[in-house]
Amino acid sequence: MVARTALVALAALTVGAQAHQVFNHPSVWGLKTSLENPLNQGTKNWFCAGQKPHTGKGKLQIRAGQTLSVPVTCGEAVGNPDNAVQICSNDINGFHGGGGCALSITSKQNPTIDDFTVFSVAAKCPDLGRKVPFQIPANLPAGEYVCSWSWIPNPQNAAAEYYENCFDCSVVSDVKGTVTGGIKLRDHVFGVPGFPSDNQEGRLYKNAFKNGAQKIEVSGGGAPVPPVTTQTGHSTRKPRSSSTKAHSSTKEHSSTKPTHTAEPTQEPTENPEPTAEPTVEPTAEPTAEPTAEPTAEPTAEPTTPPKKCHKNKDRA
């Protein structure tokens, strides 16, 4: 009985010694408890933990400009991330004192380590089975990608180890384009064949990166164009309005000068009116009065008296 109890205790210690950390999401390629194991210099097919591409379930949705909270837990909590804090509390040493975790991305569906660009780092990661918040760059373009979670543990609590899980992801964003620049993950791989295994303290992600969203470069797209077009339209209109004012003010000044020149020209034209008045009045008055008066009076007076004379003679 005592021997059996000792064997159970030894098994528990063995499990505790093997318990490390894993990106605990269904989209992880080949998700299982053994993915918690570190990738070290003696590991074969270390890239993406040696898992075949696209063997996870679904895709992890990432929203540009927001915070993504994901479970980083011990392997025993795989498939049960909501209870990870309780499940992993028996293996505090498995967190190796944190050290910081990174998320990387590539548009290639069968990538190599050279294809990944780091886009977010969480300095407090792992965090005893709790969900870890990752801040996402606002200019991360929309699309279907392959993502990577990686972790270098604190050298005070771990050997020269490196952890990495790959998973399918999709980005929801108003930005269109392709990630063409940024910090390459290949420059921050540690403790595996072909990569550095010294200065572990300096290579911790919490020391090598700033905490939060990382700077990335995007080409072939960018922010929506309409606001830029609208601003251009306003900026185009302003010069037109100012030029109109300039022309109108110029016309005012130029028209003011010709107005003085035109007024003298019109004044002589208006001054002949007095010339026209005397021309009409003298011509009309002498012609109408002398012609009408002498013609009417002499004709009427001599015609009437003779008739009267004839009538008197007849009466006599």
Results as ranks from 00 to 15, higher is better:
T295W: 00
A3R: 12
D82T: 04
E277Q: 12
P272Y: 06
S254N: 09
A102Y: 00
Q266I: 13
G212D: 07
F195N: 10
D198I: 03
N45Y: 05
I152C: 04
E164T: 11
C74L: 02
I216K: 08
G221Y: 01
F95Q: 08
Q266W: 06
S148T: 10
V132T: 14
E144C: 00
E277N: 10
T261C: 05
P111H: 05
T259V: 11
Q200N: 08
V228A: 14
K206A: 14
T259K: 11
E201T: 13
R63G: 00
D127K: 08
N93Y: 03
N37R: 13
H260P: 02
V146M: 10
C166V: 09
E297Y: 03
N139W: 03
P264E: 13
V2Y: 04
P26N: 04
F23P: 01
C101V: 11
F134L: 12
P126K: 06
R315W: 04
P298F: 03
A49E: 02
T250L: 14
G98K: 09
G129P: 05
N312M: 06
G16A: 12
R130E: 14
E36D: 13
A122E: 12
G220M: 07
E36I: 04
P141I: 05
T244Y: 10
G202E: 14
P53Q: 08
K307D: 11
T250H: 13
W149R: 03
R4F: 11
K176R: 14
T291W: 01
K108S: 13
N110L: 10
T303G: 09
S104H: 05
P239Q: 13
G222Q: 06
A84S: 15
K44Q: 12
P137Y: 03
A6T: 03
K108H: 09
E217M: 06
S104N: 09
K238D: 12
Q200K: 06
P193D: 12
P239Y: 06
V72E: 07
A262R: 10
P294D: 05
F116R: 04
G50D: 05
D127H: 05
L35Y: 02
W29P: 04
A223F: 11
T304E: 15
S104G: 15
C169N: 04
E285N: 08
Q41M: 10
K311I: 09
A316G: 11
G233W: 03
